[in-house]
Nucleic acid binder design. Structure first.
Lengths: 127, 127
DNA sequence: CTTGACCTTCCAGCAAGTGGAACCCCCATC
DNA sequence: GATGGGGGTTCCACTTGCTGGAAGGTCAAG
């Protein structure tokens, strides 16, 4: 399969797939004309990557997950550990954003938002 | 004031302050020995920037906010508009993360996380 | 034979800094 | 006078995860 078809099947832009080859996440073969040739297993891997990235796993997480995925003997604990770390990151990020949202939400509510210059938002930032 | 003191007062790393000068957010003077010299108004601006960044405003937002801040005649509506846009971005990000959190949370719960190789997390990613 | 859709490589850039190297400056101490 | 420490300066490279674009090779159709 050429990169365009793979892009369609895996739901990733061709550029991204080339990038993933660059950083060693997939190793497609090359045909005589220099085009990348992807096996079914590569397409599979790329779809896996797409889903893991959509869940917010970092590229390095993905690298580890792919390795664990290819190792039928690994303990599920290893996978769970990576996922739990990531869950922690997500939770911290949500907490941070929620706090920002609250603070900024109050400020926005208290601002008249009309033609007058008085603005509690700027006033608060300027404390 | 030299950059070190400013860093302490504004709560920003010196590196960041230099960067903010680079991109034109502050324009400190220079003294004879080449050191940056910050006026009280610069320190004030930097503290403003620190708070706006802590609320997640982008640098370009900060640039606009600073300009509005310096213009005593602007309408509060302009400030409110920037803040509301940002609020929207925060809300979308929170929604995205919350969805990720739910999906990944279910997967983590369903994974035994022991020495056995069966792992619903990998299974789901591999669909 | 040419057109258009593919594919290739490489280089640059995004956001918002951070780290490090190599070097200057100023004050205090020995 | 030398030296040591703690400032400061510049510039360059690196981070994450791609994305855009230029310049060019390949292939199938009309």
């Amino acid at each position: 399969m050429n990169i365009g078809d793979v892009a369609t099947h895996a739901g990733l832009p061709a550029k991204t797939i080339r990038y993933y080859e660059d950083i060693g996440l997939v190793q497609p073969k090359r045909s005589a004309n220099g085009y990348r040739t992807f096996r079914q297993s590569d397409v599979h891997k790329l779809a896996f990557l797409g889903r893991a990235r959509a869940l917010g796993f970092t590229i390095e997480d993905c690298r580890s997950l792919l390795k664990l995925y290819g190792d039928t003997d690994r303990a599920s604990a290893e996978v769970k550990h990576i996922a739990q770390e990531h869950l922690g990151r997500i939770d911290r990020k949500i907490a941070e954003l929620t706090e920002m949202r609250a603070t900024l939400g109050h400020l926005v509510e208290s601002c008249a938002g009309d033609h007058r210059p008085d603005c509690p938002i700027l006033a608060d930032l300027a404390i």
